[in-house]
Simulated assay, not measured.
Amino acid sequence: MKYVEPQPGGREQLPSAVAAGDVAAICTALISAAFHEDDGKWVQDWALELLAHPSADVRHTAALTVGHVARIHRYIDHDLVVPRLQALLDDPEIGGAVENALDDIRMFTDAET
């Protein structure tokens, strides 16, 4: 896997990528939004919605995105996000990404996880 620097445009691309069901475009737009969107709550809310997506790749990216929001924006809705993540810790496909997100929340916000 090769690292690709996230480009701006996630806010504009994410809704249409989700509507089209394009897994790669959803993941790209979600990461782009995490890095370039000023509204951390908007990104958080999309990531939470996508934690239930049928694609493990999208769910994994959504968990990573929550961690990015905590790290970049120093914001997370603890009461909403933490229980959702904790419920996914045993998911074999995304449990590691969920643990990383919870670590970022502990490290970069005032949350108790």
Results as ranks from 00 to 15, higher is better:
V82R: 14
R84Y: 02
A47S: 15
D90C: 01
E12Y: 05
I94V: 15
C27W: 03
W46Y: 15
H60F: 14
V58H: 03
V69L: 10
D39E: 11
I72H: 05
P8M: 06
R106W: 10
L102A: 09
L89R: 15
V82H: 05
S16C: 01
A47M: 09
S55C: 08
S32I: 02
L88E: 06
G67N: 03
G96H: 07
Y3R: 12
L30F: 06
L85Y: 04
E112M: 05
Y3L: 12
H60W: 15
A33R: 00
G9Y: 09
T28V: 08
A87H: 02
D90L: 13
G10S: 03
D110W: 10
D79I: 00
I94S: 10
G95P: 05
K41H: 12
S55L: 08
L30I: 05
T61R: 12
V69W: 09
A70P: 01
H68R: 12
V18P: 06
E49W: 00
A70E: 02
Q13E: 11
M1H: 11
A19N: 06
Q86S: 11
T28E: 11
T109Q: 07
Y75R: 10
Y3I: 11
I72E: 03
T61A: 14
G67D: 04
G9F: 07
R59M: 07
R71C: 02
A20N: 10
H53V: 05
R84S: 13
A29V: 08
L80G: 00
W46G: 04
S16R: 14
L50W: 12
V98Q: 08
G40H: 06
